[in-house]
């Protein structure tokens, strides 16, 4: 067996990371500043605005997008978080999730559209997406820390890597599921590629894409604890501290807060898509 040399994947990856490291400034500083700028903005807004306004805002959002009776659950749940004393950390977490979701959407939807239009691109993306979803987060957290340093930015990066695949997949699926006759109709009347995309494919794929966004937010939320391990603030930090101190009570409280946030976000985004008219 010794005669067959080991495939030096480790060396390749290290070499690649080292190569990226050399150009760290040019490559990663813009990303770093954009993400930390967004994070600062959201955490300032969310922690700066009085808690009852935020609660009312979320109540209104569930009223508009979700089912009416979940509004009560939302208001009670968020009030409970405030009562337990996790309000500020919850808002930090929410900011982290919103930024991760925004980045995922901005990158993921165009990537999904490209996948739907070009089979070759989809074939290239599929294993990449598999890798993103299944590679243990700690593996790419190490280089992320190397590039961005400790803190919230690598946390966002890790969340984006984990949470973006459903958006890409479901955008691709949604567009491909548009009945061929409808795409043909758009072409037959002389649409340009963009017109077909905007006026036919995206509107019809909307429900599926929204399901992708919903999944993305849920997955981003599930990454907050891991993000906390590399220095991100928020509920994840509380959970992490509770684990290290074996503080069962506080751990449960922080975990419960994450669950409440998850339910609220899920109800808002899940039902947004379902109000669409049935397709023929």
């Amino acid at each position: 067996m010794d005669s067959v040399p080991k495939v030096p994947i480790d060396k390749w990856v290290e070499g690649f990371v080292a190569f990226l490291g050399e150009y760290r400034g040019e490559l990663f500083d813009p990303i770093d500043s954009v993400i930390s700028g967004m994070l600062t903005f959201f955490s300032t807004v969310l922690t700066g605005v009085p808690f009852f306004i935020i609660i009312l805002l979320f109540g209104a959002l569930t009223w508009v997008f979700g089912k009416r009776n979940t509004m009560i659950t939302t208001v009670i749940g968020l009030s409970l978080i405030y009562n337990l004393g996790y309000w500020e950390n919850t808002m930090e977490t929410l900011g982290l999730v919103i930024v991760s979701a925004l980045v995922s959407i901005v990158v993921g939807i165009p990537a999904g559209i490209l996948c739907a239009r070009h089979d070759a691109f989809r074939n290239l993306m599929t294993p990449v997406l598999d890798l993103m979803q299944t590679m243990p987060a700690f593996v790419y957290l190490i280089p992320a820390i190397f590039f961005f340093g400790l803190g919230e930015v690598p946390g966002v990066i890790a969340s984006v890597i984990f949470a973006m695949p459903p958006i890409v997949r479901l955008t691709n699926l949604g567009i491909r599921q548009v009945p061929q006759e409808l795409a043909e109709a758009a072409d037959a009347f002389g649409s340009t590629g963009w017109q077909k995309l905007w006026k036919v494919q995206l509107p019809l794929a909307k429900t599926t894409i929204l399901a992708g966004i919903n999944q993305c937010i849920m997955l981003a939320l599930s990454m907050v604890v891991i993000a906390a391990m590399i220095g991100a603030k928020g509920l994840g930090a509380d959970v992490y501290r509770a684990i290290s101190q074996v503080d069962i009570g506080r751990g449960f409280e922080a975990g419960l807060s994450i669950v409440i946030i998850a339910i609220v976000l899920d109800r808002i985004t899940q039902h947004a898509g379902q109000k669409e008219r049935e397709t023929i």
Partner: peptide, 13 residues
């Protein structure tokens, strides 16, 4: 050219 399709191909939205 105008085209009419078997399954109508109307845009549901």
């Amino acid at each position: 050219l105008g085209m009419v399709f078997q399954n109508f191909a109307l845009f549901p939205q």
